[in-house]
Design a binder for these strands. Structure first.
Lengths: 202, 202
DNA sequence: GTCTATAACGGGATAGAC
DNA sequence: GTCTATCCCGTTATAGAC
């Protein structure tokens, strides 16, 4: 993909996170990207084209940064890794906030836009499977379908908490605590096999 | 509330569920409600006013149909009531779909619209407290803050599942199963006191 | 490929009659 | 309270030069 288009898509992602899909103005996008409106239409045909490409761009990027962070020193124990991975999405940093907001917008838009559904479903599935694998590392004795269910729950749960956070009804610390609690509860139900304890019941 | 305003708000809820907040056109709303645009502005000042009142309308209605179903024969045991209340929001009927879709839209809109945040937060809190009370009936021995946390998680979780359902990534039956699993997990963590067992682990 | 200038339009909002 | 008519602004989208 040409550098110019990437530059525009990055700006679009920033802007969608800041103003929402509905609040995205082509002229504002042009300014943010440092190009003209004409160029944007040259590359993306129309407003919908901008949106479609941006959403694709965002979901690709989310996959990348979730997987990326596997370089550091000692690989932490499985439970730590699970928790870290999930809490990664609940941080008040520009990057995470941007991706979460854009993701939420994407999800909400898909309710009314068939064109987005397929991409979204695929991206979700990748994410669920990754979490499922992490759960499996913590609870090796648990059956695959139970892991899959727990993963589907935890990721859906995360999205719910994320929306509450972004819409101002939940502070980030509280959201993180709640997510930790959810993980604890799921692991408890999955059984105490493996290396971990089931966590204290408060 | 005057019959005319109710009529408009019903139409607004229908339209938001069908087209999204983003797709709501005042003129279209007027047509749907069978009134003129002028009348809508007379009653609701501006577009944001329409949205705010619709949100209130929706959350009242949800409360009503959540609380309403307490007429039937024998009041079911507390756990049954908790499960039923939560699963009530995961049904593929026009009424529920409409309420859920509109609620999701308003939540998503609130991320970028300060005017909606306060109302939304209040409505959410009512809902959380209701669930908290139901949880308390199942687990009388659990401390209040643990109940509150579990309630906050379950409702956020429900919203997450609901969005996946509405955006086509999750079938309704599956969503209901996942929700049941989440309730089971939360109750397990809250302890086995009370009249209930903790449920089988699959 | 990229820009500037502008056409074309959708839709929010208001005025004023009834 | 309710309607019709309309204004007008913000935005999308295009034309044409470079």
């Amino acid at each position: 993909m040409a550098p110019r288009t990437t530059q525009i898509l990055e700006a679009a992602a920033r802007l969608i996170a800041r103003r929402g899909v509905r609040g995205l103005r082509v002229e504002e996008l042009a300014a943010e990207a440092g190009v003209s409106t004409g160029l944007i239409y040259y590359h993306f045909k129309d407003r919908t084209g901008i949106l479609r490409h941006t959403l694709e761009f965002i979901s690709d990027r989310a996959e990348r940064y979730t997987t990326a962070r596997d370089e550091g020193a000692a690989p932490p124990d499985p439970r730590e890794e699970l928790v870290e991975t999930l809490l990664l999405e609940l941080q008040d940093t520009p990057e995470v906030r941007e991706n979460s907001a854009a993701w939420g917008e994407l999800r909400a838009s898909a309710v009314f836009d068939d064109a987005l559904r397929e991409d979204l479903a695929r991206a979700t599935q990748v994410w669920v499977q990754e979490v499922s694998a992490l759960l499996g590392a913590v609870r090796p004795a648990a059956p695959a379908h139970a892991l899959a269910e727990a993963a589907e729950r935890l990721t859906a749960h995360l999205e719910g908490l994320s929306m509450r956070w972004l819409s101002g009804g939940l502070r980030i610390d509280r959201a993180r605590d709640l997510m930790r609690g959810a993980i604890r509860a799921e692991l408890a139900v999955l059984g105490a096999e493996g290396t971990e304890d089931a966590g204290a019941v408060e």
